[in-house]
Simulated assay, not measured.
Amino acid sequence: MNDDLTPESQEMPGRDWLAAELADALDEEYELELEDVALSAEIARIYKDRHPDALDRATYMHALIRLQSELIKLQDWVVHNRQKVVVIFEGRDSAGKGGVIKRIAQRLNPRVVRTVALPAPTERERGQWYFQRYVPHLPAAGEIVLFDRSWYNRAGVERVMGFATEDQVEEFFRDVPEFERMLVRSGIKVVKYWFSITDEEQQFRFLMRIHDPMKQWKLSPMDLQSRVRWEQYTKAKEDMFERTNIHEAPWYIVEGNDKKRARLNCIDHFLSLMPYGPVPHEEIVLPDRVFNPDYERATLPPELYVPSKY
């Protein structure tokens, strides 16, 4: 008997077992969706009033799982063809970048698909070539890298908050098109997404975070300052689009007020950009377990086991 299976799963017919596996996958997604559930009936009512045409959970989750199955095909194609892909996610605070990154990576191999979210630069990094700290995170053959914010920090938060001088910003704008063209020439596919939300929607999401103990960590002093400097961020964004929207690596804007639609639209669009297709797979055959009649499983001391509280 396989010790890794529960008695229930050992007795379960094939179709019932598959149904249970699907239900478990849905439960996993539902756990992520709990992030979007309001803490009180009043907040839920306000959210529903603000998003009257929001996708129902069943429609959203069926579409998401279909897209995630395509992402698995894309992953296999990237590995088989030794492709290199960089996807940049930018946007205002609370615009939904992290949510779509989670859904893209959720069912993929973390050795193939990596998420990079760099902290503020160290003193040593501030003395380096600006792009230097990003270069070690670029993909090797057969990898996809998802940047949760990227070198475009210089065009946004660093510029607006005064962490970079105007000369440094101007140097960035001169360098970044050629930097990205250089990446493309080296065989890296560069995809850039900007998640766009309205002033009112950001305010609502910030208030949700303030009143949700499980999300308060997402609010930093910089996030709060972004509310004060909304118009400055808007001007910086427009300047960034004008000067960095190059043919080799164009910007794509995702309408983000509706989180679920934004996730589905972004994933669907990303898939449409990639010329992936079927790749050969070796048939997977589960080998027989080697049985040694002289082996006796040792009894381990009870203190080694995690207490069964649930």
Rank of each mutant, 00 (worst) to 15 (best):
D24I: 13
A25W: 11
L26Y: 13
L26W: 11
L26E: 15
L26S: 11
D27C: 12
D27Q: 14
D27H: 14
D27E: 15
E29G: 12
E31K: 15
E31T: 14
E35Q: 13
L39P: 07
S40M: 07
A41L: 14
E42P: 06
E42N: 11
E42Q: 14
E42T: 12
E42H: 14
I43D: 15
R45P: 08
R45H: 15
R45T: 14
I46D: 15
Y47M: 14
K48V: 11
K48D: 15
R50K: 13
R50I: 07
H51T: 12
P52W: 07
D53C: 01
A54S: 13
A54K: 08
L55H: 06
D56E: 10
A58Y: 13
T59E: 00
Y60C: 00
M61A: 12
L64M: 01
I65R: 11
R66T: 13
R66A: 12
L67P: 06
Q68P: 06
Q68D: 02
E70N: 10
L71I: 02
K73T: 13
L74P: 04
Q75C: 01
Q75I: 02
D76L: 07
D76Q: 14
D76M: 09
W77D: 08
V79Y: 10
V79A: 04
H80V: 00
H80S: 06
N81Y: 14
N81H: 13
Q83V: 05
K84V: 03
V85G: 06
V86F: 09
V86L: 11
I88C: 05
I88K: 01
G91A: 04
G91V: 04
G91F: 03
R92N: 12
R92Y: 10
D93Q: 06
A95D: 04
G96N: 02
G96E: 03
G96W: 06
G99M: 01
V100Q: 03
V100N: 03
I104S: 01
A105M: 03
A105P: 12
Q106A: 14
Q106E: 10
R107E: 11
L108H: 02
L108Y: 07
N109S: 08
N109G: 00
P110I: 00
R111C: 01
R111F: 14
R114N: 09
T115S: 08
V116M: 02
A117W: 09
A117T: 05
P119A: 01
A120D: 13
E123L: 10
E125K: 00
E125G: 00
R126Q: 11
Q128E: 15
Q128C: 07
Q128G: 07
W129I: 04
F131S: 02
Q132F: 12
Q132Y: 11
Q132N: 13
Y134I: 04
Y134W: 15
Y134D: 05
Y134P: 07
V135M: 09
H137L: 05
P139M: 05
A140C: 07
V145S: 06
L146Q: 01
F147T: 02
W151C: 01
W151S: 01
Y152Q: 04
Y152R: 00
Y152C: 04
N153M: 04
N153A: 12
R154Y: 08
R154L: 01
A155Q: 02
G156A: 00
V157C: 02
E158P: 08
E158F: 10
R159Q: 11
M161G: 06
M161L: 10
G162F: 12
A164Y: 07
T165G: 00
T165F: 08
